[in-house]
Design a protein around this nucleic acid. Structure first.
Lengths: 143, 143
DNA sequence: CGTTTAATTGATATTCAATCTCAATTTCAG
DNA sequence: CTGAAATTGAGATTGAATATCAATTAAACG
């Protein structure tokens, strides 16, 4: 469970398990899909939680460091995150018209990373592939 | 030559070819590698050019639309660009230790994009693959 | 349990890239 | 050369993200 994983992460670093951190962790894992820090903050505010904006940002950094959450992409409007604990790594297609994000996983791509790294003396730890274009729905609307 | 390409782009859109746009275009193509808007602006300022920051940003957007320049990645400190005219598309490996950026091109990856898009009803226009890890030099230093 | 101490919080100020405003200027077609 | 429309630039503005710092809190220890 992500709760335990985060608890361990904090423990290993001599960090404290505070109400705020627990609340933020819970909120992050309360739904699936992508989210932005500001939205998370306001969602929590509405939900009655009192965690400050600063704590949201600070905790988000910790969650990324712990590997429970990943930065998906940076847009003009800020950073998009998603929780990844228990989920397989995947990449994204982003529709430039409606902003829809399609997730996909490709075994071939994973192997390709290894291949490319090997031939460049690079030790690849992670990757992000972002394909931009237009989704089916938006292409149909156009005409 | 990129000059003509940009001229055509502007013409097609009924936009004007101004001194500022020319100066910015020239500066962008005066060197290779990655750059950030702010650096470009200050470099021009030192060089005696009088293009304003606003014009730099505005022209950069046009250059991206015209396909002469691409956004490479967004960092905490802003957007990184590179001119791509005359260059083949490529992707990047970023060393998390020293920040070094290694460029690479993979035919397999290009084909993979088509493949992935096809099976998702997505019309892929472009992609960015960013592999993070550590470069050879930094790994050697560690021990 | 209390104490103690270092970590954490939160309200607010601050930073900084990027965008907007709008009067003055410039391009360019006719 | 002239006029209409596009463009510029200085400065204001936005908005995400971070820094500040006094007050609070977690938790190891006795």
């Amino acid at each position: 469970m992500e709760n335990t994983a985060f608890r361990n992460f904090l423990g290993d670093r001599g960090l404290k398990l505070t109400k705020e951190r627990i609340a933020i962790l819970k909120e992050v894992f309360s739904f699936h899909g992508h989210f932005e820090p500001e939205h998370l903050y306001f969602r929590m505010k509405e939900g009655g939680s009192k965690a400050s904006r600063a704590s949201v940002y600070r905790t988000l950094s910790l969650l990324v460091e712990s590997g429970l959450v990943e930065k998906v992409t940076r847009t003009e409007k800020g950073t998009v995150y998603e929780h990844t604990y228990g989920h397989r790594h995947h990449d994204h297609m982003i529709c430039g018209v409606c902003g829809k994000i399609i997730e996909f996983y490709s075994e071939k791509l994973e192997n390709l990373q290894k291949e490319i790294c090997a031939s460049n003396g690079f030790d690849g730890v992670s990757h992000t592939l972002e394909i931009r274009g237009s989704c089916q729905r938006c292409r149909k609307k156009r005409r």
